Simulated assay, not measured.
Amino acid sequence: MLFSHLLPDQVQDVLDALPTPVFFKDRHGVYKGCNRAFARLIGRRRREIVGLTVFDISPEEYAKSHFDADAALMRSGGEQRYEAQIKRCDGERRHVVFHKAALYDAQGELSGIVGTILDITERKALEVQLADMAERDALTCLFNRRAILAHLEALHRDRRQASQSLCLMMCDVDHFKRINDRHGHAKGDEVLRQVAHLLSGKLRDGDRVGRIGGEEFLIVLASADLEDARQVAERLRQQVADLSITCAEGARLEVTISIGVARSLHQDEDWADVIARADAGLYAAKRAGRDKVIVADAHMLPANHKDWHQA
């Protein structure tokens, strides 16, 4: 038998040398032993763990799930592997992988369980970071085209089920090509970043904004009230016009946006059609002299109507 030639203290020394947290429990869920790495992970001394149950060292909502998993393992035997969260005694939450096995005595009777813990908190944080990066526009840090359209589609689906409408805006930086041509692409990028920062910072809870491409932005509003949406659009238009951006000569660079606003007409209307009407409102604002907000009516569609599902 492994370690059978070692004294108990020597076995403990071997376990303490392991960097992986190890613990033992009897069939009643009482901790009978653990190594130094386990004690560090939990945030208690070993003597403060042995003789206790998971309910003594973890909040009840965590302890209950751990206890139920242990009970399932002792009923079925074999091994068990799963991801979970633990909460240290200092309140810090950690993402971990439990790997447990049932223990049996010389007569083949269940005596408890032994387990190891792999801390994957940093890996989980990296996964979240990578997922966030995949949804973000590299220049502006807003949602990218795919992410904002996915948000719109999900919201529209929920609104349909509740027989509710939604409102959105299409925004475009006026004369952006002229800014690039006169002041360079670096200054054009700065304009996009500042406009994006303003839009994201001035929206309300529940509103979302993404960069659709180039100098175009899509704002999906939490409110379904069209007059409320128009007022939000007017406020954003004015705040962009008040931006203080200087060019190389020190003069103030005038930046404005045009905005088209639309609301879904009925619960069966496709979200792509709502965007198309907001886009039509945007182009109407451009034709009306720019730096304007136009609320699209039911019949307003652009001549070059896009398929936003494929765009």
Results as ranks from 00 to 15, higher is better:
Gln129His: 10
Arg44Gly: 02
Ala296Tyr: 05
Thr20Tyr: 07
Pro302Cys: 11
Arg159Trp: 07
Ile42Tyr: 02
Asp279Gly: 01
Ala284Pro: 00
Val274Asp: 00
Ala229Phe: 04
Gly43Val: 12
Ala233Asn: 01
His151Pro: 00
Arg157Val: 09
Ile86Cys: 03
His66Ser: 09
Tyr82His: 11
Ile57Tyr: 03
Arg277Met: 09
Gln239Cys: 08
Val209Ser: 03
Ala147Ser: 14
Leu152Asn: 01
Gly214Asn: 11
Asp9Gly: 10
Val195Thr: 06
Asp174Pro: 03
Cys34Gln: 04
Ser223Leu: 09
Asp56Ser: 09
Met170Phe: 08
Arg157Leu: 13
Glu60Ala: 13
Met169Asp: 00
Ala224Thr: 05
Arg94Asp: 04
Arg44Trp: 13
Leu198Ala: 05
Lys100Ala: 10
Gly33Met: 10
His197Asp: 15
Val255Asn: 02
Lys25Tyr: 07
Val30Phe: 10
Phe67Leu: 06
Asp225Pro: 00
Leu192Val: 04
Ser58Met: 15
His28Pro: 00
Ala272Asp: 12
Arg145Ile: 04
Arg193Lys: 15
Leu41Asn: 02
Leu226Val: 14
Leu52Ser: 13
Ile219Leu: 15
His183Leu: 06
Leu265Ser: 07
Arg208Glu: 12
Leu103Met: 15
His299Val: 08
Val295Pro: 00
Phe3Ala: 10
Pro302Leu: 09
Glu227Tyr: 06
Asp68Asn: 13
Gly213Lys: 09
His185Asn: 09
Asp132Val: 08
Gly43Gln: 08
His5Arg: 12
Lys25Val: 14
Ala311His: 14
Arg81Gly: 03
Met169Ile: 05
